[in-house]
Amino acid sequence: MDAGTAAVLGALAGSVATIGAAMATGWAQREGARITARSEHRRERREPRYNAYKEFIAEATRMRNASAVWGIDLSHTSEVDDEIIDYWRLVENALKNKARDVVLAGPTKVTKAVIELERLATELVVEFMTYRDVVGQEPLQSEMRRQLLLKAREFESALVSFKLSAQVALDDDGS
Rank of each mutant, 00 (worst) to 15 (best):
D2M: 01
D2N: 06
A3P: 03
A3S: 12
A6H: 12
A7W: 09
V8Q: 10
L9G: 07
V16A: 11
A17C: 04
T18A: 11
I19V: 15
G20T: 06
M23V: 10
A24G: 05
T25L: 15
Q29P: 00
G32K: 10
R34G: 02
R34L: 12
I35H: 02
I35E: 08
T36Y: 00
H41F: 14
R42G: 00
E44W: 13
Y50V: 11
Y50R: 15
A52G: 06
A52S: 09
A52Q: 05
A52V: 06
K54I: 11
E55S: 10
F56L: 08
I57C: 00
A58M: 13
E59H: 07
A60C: 10
T61L: 09
R62A: 05
M63A: 10
R64A: 13
N65F: 07
S67C: 06
S67Q: 07
S67A: 11
A68T: 14
V69W: 13
W70Q: 06
I72Y: 03
D73V: 09
L74H: 11
H76F: 14
E79H: 07
D81S: 05
D82N: 07
I84F: 13
I85H: 04
D86Y: 01
Y87N: 02
Y87K: 05
R89P: 03
L90H: 14
L90W: 14
E92C: 05
N93R: 06
A94C: 04
A94M: 09
A94D: 13
L95C: 05
L95D: 02
K98G: 02
A99T: 03
R100F: 14
D101Y: 02
V103G: 04
V103I: 13
L104A: 09
A105N: 05
A105C: 08
G106Q: 12
P107C: 05
P107K: 03
K109M: 04
K109S: 07
K109F: 09
V114S: 10
V114M: 11
L117F: 11
L117K: 06
E118R: 11
A121S: 12
E123T: 13
E123A: 11
L124I: 15
V125Y: 13
E127L: 09
T130V: 08
T130C: 00
Y131N: 10
Y131I: 08
Y131W: 12
Y131A: 06
R132G: 14
R132N: 15
V134S: 05
V135T: 11
G136E: 02
Q137T: 13
Q137P: 08
Q137D: 12
P139W: 04
P139V: 03
L140P: 05
Q141I: 14
S142R: 01
S142D: 01
R145Y: 03
Q147W: 01
L148W: 02
E156K: 03
S157H: 15
S157P: 08
A158P: 03
F162C: 04
S165A: 14
A166I: 03
V168D: 15
V168H: 14
A169I: 02
L170Q: 11
S175W: 00
